[in-house]
C-alpha cells in the first residue's frame, strides 16, 4: 500500500473525529435540534471500507451515519445544514442527522429503523444486476441489525441472485444500553451464518484501518468477480452515549475500565504512531491537517448557521413525486 493512501486514510479518520467532536461540543447550544448518534471511536471502519470504493459505488447506512456519509465523500456543509434543520441541508431539513443523503457521492441514504436499510441496499444491488451495471452497494449495519428478520431475508436473496452487495457489520457490542449477552447466544458467529448462505465472509479488528482496508479489498474482489455478496464484521467501540454528545460510562450499563481499554485502542492515535514510525507522517503534517480540517469545519458551521430555515410551505412539499 502506498504512503499517499495511508495518509489519506489517516486524514479521513481525523477529519471525521474532529467533525464529530465539534458537533458534540456545540450540541449544548440547542441549535442542532435533532438526535445525533456520533461515530467517535468507530471511524476506522467507515474510512477503511470506503477507501476501496469508487464514486459510482453506493453506500447506505443507519442512524449512526455521519462517518459513512463523510467517508464516501458526502458534502460536509450540506450535512451540517441538515443537522441544523436548514433548507440548504442535504434533505432540505426534512431528515436531520438520521436521514442524510448525497446522491453525487453515491450515498443513497441512512435510516434509523434497525435493519431497515439492509433489504433496501440489497435491492440496490438487485437494481444494479437488473440493469447490468458494474457498481457495488455497501451497507453499514450494527450488531443489533443482525438480529432482525430482514438480515436473514436479505442475505438469502443476495446469495440467491449473486448480488453485488457488501454487508459491513460494525459490532460495538451494545444496542443502546443492551449488551450482546442479553440479545444473542454466546458464541453466535455471524461470519459462519453468512457462510452458511454461501456468502463470502470475514471478520477483523474494527480499530485497525489497514486490517479493515485489506479485508474489504479481498471481499470486493470476490464481489467484482461475480461471486455474489460478501459479509464483513469488525469489532469496535462507541466512546460516547448511544445518542447525544456525552460520555455515559457512569450510568451503569458498562464500566469505565472497559471504555478505557478501548480508548487505548483509538484507531486514529495508533495509526498516527504507526505512520510516524514508518516515516510517512510528521508532526508538522499532522498540524497542517488539523488546521485544514478546523477551517473546513468552521466554514461548514457558518454555512449551516447562516442558512435559512425552510419556508413553512415546505411542510407540504415532497409528499408525492
Amino acid at each position: 500500500m502506498n504512503s499517499a493512501l495511508k495518509k489519506k486514510m489517516y486524514f479521513d479518520m481525523l477529519r471525521i473525529r474532529i467533525i464529530e467532536e465539534k458537533i458534540a461540543q456545540r450540541y449544548s447550544e440547542w441549535e442542532m435540534r435533532c438526535p445525533v448518534h456520533l461515530s467517535i471511536g468507530q471511524e476506522a471502519i467507515a474510512c477503511g471500507v470506503c477507501a476501496n470504493l469508487n464514486q459510482q459505488d453506493y453506500v447506505m447506512s443507519t442512524h449512526r451515519a455521519h462517518a459513512h456519509y463523510l467517508a464516501k465523500g458526502g458534502s460536509l456543509k450540506k450535512m451540517m445544514a441538515e443537522i441544523y434543520g436548514k433548507a440548504t441541508g442535504c434533505s432540505m431539513g426534512k431528515g436531520g442527522s438520521m436521514h442524510i443523503v448525497d446522491l453525487d457521492a453515491g450515498f443513497l441514504g441512512s435510516t434509523p429503523i434497525v435493519g431497515g436499510v439492509i433489504p433496501i441496499a440489497t435491492g440496490v444491488g438487485f437494481g444494479i444486476t437488473l440493469k447490468e451495471e458494474k457498481q457495488i452497494c455497501v451497507v453499514f449495519i450494527g450488531d443489533a441489525s443482525t438480529e432482525e428478520g430482514v438480515f436473514s431475508e436479505s442475505l438469502n436473496f443476495a446469495a440467491l441472485k449473486k448480488l453485488p452487495v457488501l454487508f459491513v457489520c460494525e459490532n460495538n457490542f451494545f444496542s443502546v444500553y443492551s449488551p450482546l449477552s442479553v440479545r444473542q447466544p454466546k458464541d453466535r458467529d455471524n461470519v459462519a451464518i453468512a457462510k452458511a448462505y454461501g456468502i463470502y465472509a470475514d471478520k477483523g479488528d474494527g480499530n485497525d484501518i489497514l486490517d479493515i482496508y485489506k479485508i474489504t479489498r479481498k471481499a470486493i474482489l470476490q464481489i467484482q468477480k461475480g461471486n455474489g455478496p460478501a459479509y464483513l464484521e469488525f469489532d469496535t467501540y462507541r466512546w460516547r452515549e448511544h445518542c447525544g454528545p456525552n460520555f455515559d460510562n457512569h450510568i451503569g450499563y458498562r464500566t469505565e475500565d472497559e471504555y478505557l481499554s478501548w480508548r487505548k485502542r483509538c484507531p486514529i492515535e495508533n495509526f498516527e504512531n504507526q505512520l510516524k514510525e514508518e516515516g510517512i507522517l510528521t508532526t508538522v503534517e499532522i498540524d497542517k491537517m488539523n488546521t485544514e480540517i478546523e477551517s473546513e469545519i468552521e466554514q461548514a458551521f457558518i454555512f449551516a448557521k447562516n442558512s435559512k430555515f425552510p419556508d413553512a410551505t415546505e411542510l407540504y412539499s415532497h409528499l408525492y413525486a
Binding site: 441496499a121 435491492g123 440496490v124 444491488g125 437494481g127 430482514v150 440467491l160
Partner: peptide
C-alpha cells in the same frame, strides 16, 4: 418468483426503485 420473505422483498423492491427500476 421470490423467497417467502415479504418484508425483505418489499425493501428489495424499494432499493431497486432507487436505481431506476
Amino acid at each position: 418468483d421470490m423467497p417467502v420473505a415479504e418484508n425483505g422483498m418489499t425493501g428489495i423492491a424499494i432499493g431497486s426503485a432507487l436505481t431506476g427500476m
